[in-house]
Design a protein around this nucleic acid. Structure first.
Lengths: 258, 258
DNA sequence: CGCATCGAATGGTAATACTAATGATGGAGT
DNA sequence: ACTCCATCATTAGTATTACCATTCGATGCG
């Protein structure tokens, strides 16, 4: 009922999404452009300049700058202004910053870093989950293994992706390590990005399906070693994927001395 | 000359440390107490309350709240105030937050998470460094291996700690993965914390010294597999250390079903 | 039980004073 | 004439204050 009003009283600018506040809108424009390297380290903004550029008050600009400062993207000092810091100083684990980089030209490099990180963390996380997961989580993992096998054979990549994400998220969350758990959102981005990059075959490899089921089974049975080994097999193909994501980057045998 | 003036114009409160600005001073008090769990999730502050509590203006309080918000410690909404979010929502990788937790009652749990994380990441990082490190870094690692052996045998734990930190920092930085590199500061905290907790024997174990030298040698020779295996041995003792840090936590064989 | 209204708290703007950092100026000593 | 150094002026962030707009939960009425 009153369908006409629904469209009328919800102008696009007043959306209650992440851009609810003005300083978030400033961040949404300034953050990605700094993260993309559009401003060289050392480049200096002034508050007045940003004020004019975004047509907002000083307070709003300062709030945005404080957030950028807490991500260590910039420093704000009297007389100097707001200067961009070198990339090495940035908080590269800040999810917001990661998303900004994924949205821009740095996407392949960011996906590459994330993929390597996930390859390092997920096997120990699987082992930890085999030790510490709740009974309900163990059951859910078993079920997800079967669901993934089904949707994988059916070639339903969207459904498969959803189950894949939930599978890895549960594993990380149930590892009992909150830092592992904190990576679950980023792993989801990697898995999604992999699909978006068409790095997935039309049907997931049968071996990968079996390995996921094996991990689930090992966790269910409380066998950390088996879970870790099986997960290591799953992430072993990342070397290949990294090459496809960023072919220009130094590969496994580059720069080998002698 | 004018030595008397030097002491006069540099009062301790005006130090140019991290508390240079007012909002940082508010953060330095509010952040740790929230991070320590002194306010249950759902607890609501008001800007006016914080204003009075810290005797600062609204602007300053708002900037501090924005930073806490970007760490996902709190959300700020009209009518509701600034409410503390559940721990699961926090940006657990934010170095500032990690330091706040390390400074408070959560220190053992935080050290435990960090130790597990480092155990997961450092072996792959060592492998990557063997592939990608610069020649200068390979040389420095060799030298550090010898320095650690010397200071280790001499029982000079402070010097040893310094070399140990530099060793792991170089390895992470030269892995060519900026997210691995971003962990170097945190690894330094773990190593320092381990010493502070008296988890180190008076003389580092001879095996550990040999293993560090072996990692350096493998990286120097461009042997990723060897570097990774040796590093895995180094971090293998973390299981023991974790037990000592947090004896009450679920151990390797807890909750095993069946 | 649904809905309009109220009010409490944040969100945003503007004007202004304070303070820190830095480059320029000018004088003293060589 | 030249160097050195203290001092001052300039610039841009820092902080305060006051005021209005917006949002959203609660209250209570129909």
């Amino acid at each position: 009922m009153a369908a006409a009003e629904e469209t009328a009283d919800a102008p696009p600018g007043a959306a209650r999404g992440p851009h609810r506040t003005l300083h978030n809108r400033v961040l949404a424009e300034l953050g990605p452009s700094i993260a993309a390297g559009e401003y060289a380290p050392g480049h200096a903004f002034t508050l007045d300049g940003l004020e004019r550029r975004f047509q907002v008050s000083r307070t709003v600009v300062r709030e945005a700058v404080r957030v950028l400062e807490s991500m260590r993207l910039v420093v704000s000092r009297p007389r100097t202004g707001v200067t961009v810091r070198p990339v090495a100083a940035w908080n590269v684990f800040d999810p917001q910053l990661i998303r900004w980089r994924l949205a821009g030209a740095g996407r392949p490099a960011q996906l590459r870093s994330l993929t390597e990180l996930r390859a390092a963390v997920e096997p120990p996380a699987a082992a930890a989950a085999a030790r510490r997961a709740s009974p309900a989580a163990r059951e859910r993992l078993l079920a997800l293994g079967e669901l993934m096998t089904a949707s994988g054979h059916a070639g339903d990549l969207d459904t498969f992706l959803g189950h894949d994400i939930e599978f890895h998220a549960i594993l990380l969350r149930e590892s009992g390590n909150e830092m592992f758990a904190g990576l679950s959102g980023l792993v989801a981005e990697v898995l999604t990005g992999r699909t978006a990059y068409h790095l997935m075959p039309e049907h997931p490899r049968a071996e990968a399906l079996r390995l996921h089921a094996l991990v689930a089974s090992a966790v269910h049975s409380g066998l950390p070693g088996v879970a870790e080994a099986a997960m290591r097999e799953i992430v072993a193909e990342v070397g290949v994927q990294i090459e496809r994501i960023a072919p220009g980057e130094p590969g496994p045998f580059d720069r080998r001395p002698g």
